[in-house]
Amino acid sequence: MTQETYRIVVVSAGVSNPSSTSMLADRTAQRAVALARAHGHDVEISVVELRELLPELPQALSTQFMGPGFRRAIDLLAEADGVIAATPVYKAGASAAFSGFFQVLDNDLLIGKPAVLAATAGTSRHALVIDQEVRGMFAYLRALPVPTSLFAAPEDMNDPALGSRIDRAAQELVLLMESGFARAVRGETWDTYSHEFGSDAGREVTVDFSSAVMKLAAGGTLPSQTSRNRDKPTTPR
């Protein structure tokens, strides 16, 4: 295998300092670095602390207006080979800062990118938040969450079993990065996803001139009415 430099972006929604969420994310990142190096690769880690982006979140949600912190985070994610995303659980759900951040990203930014999903909570009763809520959001973003999700309640923090799960998740992340899946997707199936003009951090500017609406834009007509109007709620006048 050729030697590569992998870029991993750690996104953490922890708020206290030190934050158990950020510590969980950091432990995962450290293991991923160690494992990648053992495979002969280099790794660059970048960290996005969502706490620092909170002042920009309201405007991003209301007007898609991205402040400098969001722009930096988006640029980092655009270049990422892998993502480690960690959130505390509040009221039986992921932190609003965490959900809000991923909700305002464009839909193309994370396509095919491997991601370790991690959560911390005050009680183990929140253990499924990561798999039942966060995994679904990453599926929508067409990212590739690794099979092992990480969850840590207070009793897990010093439990060696958490360490072995971190190892496994980090290993899965490294293997998926090594597989080159995200790059292969970009090369081979990228055009088969639906994209918006200017998405993927502004890099997605290809236009399908053969689409029905593009032909209509160029003075053409739509294909037969009957097939197109099937799901129209009202009969055309």
Partner: peptide, 29 residues
């Protein structure tokens, strides 16, 4: 882009809102 395409097809003008968005957005369209 379909709207820009229609403007281009007919040789009509194209107007960018240019209020809410960073300049890169307008520049691309």
């Amino acid at each position: 882009p379909e709207i820009a395409e229609q403007a281009a097809y007919y040789g009509n003008g194209f107007f960018a809102n240019h209020i809410f968005w960073p300049k890169e957005h307008t520049q691309r369209m």
